[in-house]
C-alpha cells in the first residue's frame, strides 16, 4: 500500500531523487525497518535454506498473521501478536517428533501443513470479526512497508539485535549440526537444543519479516537472498555475508522503485529477489554446462 507515492515524481537526477526519498519521515522509517529486516532475514534465512526448513519458515510467517489479527481484535499491539504467535508456533514445531533430526522422512511437513492451513483460516476469521476486512487483510498478507511507526522500528531493532547476537554465538555449531548431525552430536554439540533454539530464532525473524513484506511474501527476504547466495558460492562465511548483502540490495531497490511508482512495494521487493535468483541459477547452470563441455572436448577430438 502506498500512501502518497512520489510527491514530485522521478527527476532522473540520482542525487535529487535520493534526497527526496529521505525527505519523507515515513520513507526514512521504511528504509530503517527494511534495513533491519533485511540483515536479519539474510542471515537467519541462510541457515534456514541450508537446513531445508523453508516450509517451517513459511508456516511461522503464516502463523504470525492470525497472531497479529487476533491481537488487533483484542486491542493489543499487532507487533506483540506477530511475535507471540510465531514464537509459539516455533515451539510447537520443535515439539513435533522428528524435527530435531533435521532432514529425513517424517510426517513433519504434513503436521506443519495442517497447522498452517488452520492458522490462515483463523486469521481470516479474526479480520472479518474486526470489521475492516479488505484493507487490513491486504496489509497483513502483502505488507505495509510504508506505514511503519517509530516504535515499530525500535521493536524490530531490539529483536533483531537479540536474534543476531544469539546466531553469532552458535553459528558454527549450528552449521556443524546442520550439515553433519551425527558427528556433531558425538563431538558434544547439543544438536537437539540447537534445533529448538534455531526454530525460535526463525520464528522471530519470520514475525519481523511478516510485518514488512506481509505473511505471504516473507520468502522474498527469507529464501531468495539465501538461495541466491548459495548458488553463487560454496564458502559458508562468504555465502552468509552475500545473503545479507543481497537482502539489503533487494529491499533498498524495492523501496526506492516503489516510492516513484504506483504499484505495491511487495511486488518490487519480490521481483528483484526473483530476478537475482534466476540470474544466479542460470549463470551457474551455464558455467556447469561450459565446464562439462570443456572436459568432454578432448575425448571428442581424439
Amino acid at each position: 500500500m502506498i500512501p502518497s507515492a512520489g510527491a514530485t515524481g522521478l527527476s532522473w537526477n540520482v542525487a535529487d531523487d535520493v534526497r527526496q526519498l529521505f525527505a519523507q519521515h515515513f520513507m526514512v522509517n521504511a528504509l530503517a525497518a527494511g534495513t533491519i529486516v533485511a540483515i536479519l532475514a539474510g542471515s537467519v534465512g541462510w541457515f534456514m535454506v541450508l537446513r531445508r526448513q523453508s516450509f517451517a519458515g513459511h508456516t511461522l510467517a503464516v502463523i504470525s498473521f492470525p497472531g497479529a489479527a487476533g491481537a488487533t481484535l483484542l486491542g493489543v499491539s499487532a507487533t506483540a501478536g506477530y511475535f507471540a504467535a510465531s514464537i509459539a508456533g516455533a515451539l510447537v514445531i520443535a515439539a513435533v517428533p522428528g524435527t530435531g533430526r533435521g532432514r529425513g522422512y517424517t510426517n513433519q511437513s504434513a503436521v506443519i501443513g495442517t497447522a498452517q492451513a488452520f492458522a490462515l483460516a483463523c486469521g481470516v476469521l479474526f479480520v472479518s470479526l474486526y470489521g475492516g476486512f479488505l484493507d487490513s487483510l491486504n496489509g497483513y498478507l502483502f505488507g505495509t512497508f510504508l506505514g511503519v511507526s517509530d516504535r515499530q522500528v525500535l521493536t524490530l531493532l531490539a529483536v533483531a539485535v537479540v536474534v543476531l547476537a544469539t546466531l553469532a554465538l552458535v553459528g558454527r555449531m549450528l552449521l556443524f549440526a546442520t550439515v553433519d548431525t551425527d558427528v556433531a552430536a558425538t563431538r558434544g554439540v547439543p544438536t537437539r537444543l540447537l534445533s529448538i533454539v534455531f526454530l525460535v530464532l526463525l520464528g522471530c525473524a519470520a514475525a519481523e519479516v511478516s510485518q514488512i513484506t506481509g505473511a505471504l511474501l516473507v520468502f522474498a527476504l527469507l529464501v531468495m537472498p539465501a538461495a541466491t547466495a548459495q548458488q553463487l558460492t560454496a564458502r559458508p562465511a562468504v555465502s552468509l555475508g552475500l545473503s545479507v548483502v543481497l537482502a539489503l540490495v533487494i529491499v533498498w531497490l524495492g523501496l526506492g522503485v516503489a516510492y516513484f511508482s504506483v504499484y505495491p512495494v511487495g511486488f518490487y521487493v519480490t521481483t528483484f529477489g526473483f530476478a537475482g535468483y534466476v540470474l544466479a541459477a542460470s549463470g551457474r547452470a551455464l558455467i556447469t554446462w561450459a565446464g562439462t563441455r570443456r572436459r568432454a572436448t578432448p575425448a571428442v577430438t581424439r
Binding site: 554465538l169 558454527r172 555449531m173 563431538r187 562465511a237 562468504v238
Partner: peptide, 14 residues
C-alpha cells in the same frame, strides 16, 4: 574444518 572447530562457540568469519 568443522571436525576441528565445529563444536566451538562463534560464527566462522573469513
Amino acid at each position: 574444518r568443522l571436525g576441528l572447530d565445529g563444536n566451538r562457540w562463534g560464527t566462522p568469519l573469513p
